[in-house]
Amino acid sequence: MSERRHHRPMRPGDRFFDDLLGGTDPALVSEAADRAATLLVRGAHGADDGAVAERLLHLADTEGIEAIAELWSGAAPESLAGCLWRLYVLRSWVHADPHAAAREYDAGLPRAPLARVVAGVAEPPGPDELKAMIDQVLRGIAAGDFADVLFRAAAFARVVAAGRAGLSASSDEQVRRMLAVSEQLEAAAHHELAGRLS
């Protein structure tokens, strides 16, 4: 029979908590992100002040898309924070590469005729028209119905996904990602209509 040595359980000591106490509590970050999204969407809604709509529109420009990503990218798609993340990513993509956005949107028009109508892009859908449309959609956070904002953005993403599916330069993964954005925004719009989006 071998002799077993019993070890005393290790105690973490003070240094164990250094990272824990010095780091940011993920629950607090998530709560702050949700609160900020709620204030932006619900607080801005119905504001007749055009400056409010412009500040919302240019939030990613002034704060940086990276700061917005840090705040909202991990939020659930059916939350206000998740919706704002998807809306700002779409706008950033259109403004960063309007020619590619126009090419993909144009390629999707015959494949998604209903979504084309809902998106409301001026014809013909060139780079400037797409930038104007996506900006108008985001201004709607302050001036319009948030469900309409989400439905229009979802329709736009659906047309782009259809266009990507028809272009040989796009990968299946790019098509799937854009289609997922469309479906998530559309589901969130239905949640908004039902009063369940928060």
Rank of each mutant, 00 (worst) to 15 (best):
M1N: 07
E3F: 08
E3Q: 11
R4S: 13
H6G: 10
R8F: 15
P12W: 13
R15V: 12
F16E: 08
F17L: 15
D19R: 13
G22W: 04
T24A: 15
T24E: 14
D25Q: 07
P26D: 08
S30C: 06
E31I: 00
A36K: 06
L39H: 10
L40Q: 07
A44R: 02
D49E: 14
G50E: 12
R55T: 15
L56F: 07
L56S: 05
L59I: 07
L59C: 08
A67V: 14
I68W: 03
A69N: 06
E70M: 12
A75P: 12
A75H: 10
W85L: 05
R86M: 03
Y88K: 00
L90C: 09
S92W: 02
A96Q: 08
A96S: 15
H99V: 10
A100V: 09
A101S: 15
A102R: 14
Y105T: 01
G108C: 00
P113S: 12
V118A: 03
A119G: 02
E123F: 05
P124T: 01
E129S: 13
A132L: 10
M133D: 12
I134A: 07
I134S: 13
D135M: 01
Q136K: 12
G140E: 04
G144H: 09
G144Q: 11
G144E: 14
D145H: 11
A147E: 10
A147C: 10
D148Q: 06
L150P: 06
A153I: 03
A155P: 05
F156I: 00
V159K: 08
A161H: 06
A162L: 01
R164H: 01
G166M: 00
S168P: 07
S171V: 05
R176T: 11
R176H: 12
M178G: 02
M178V: 01
L185K: 02
E186H: 15
A189K: 05
L193Q: 13
A194H: 12
R196G: 14
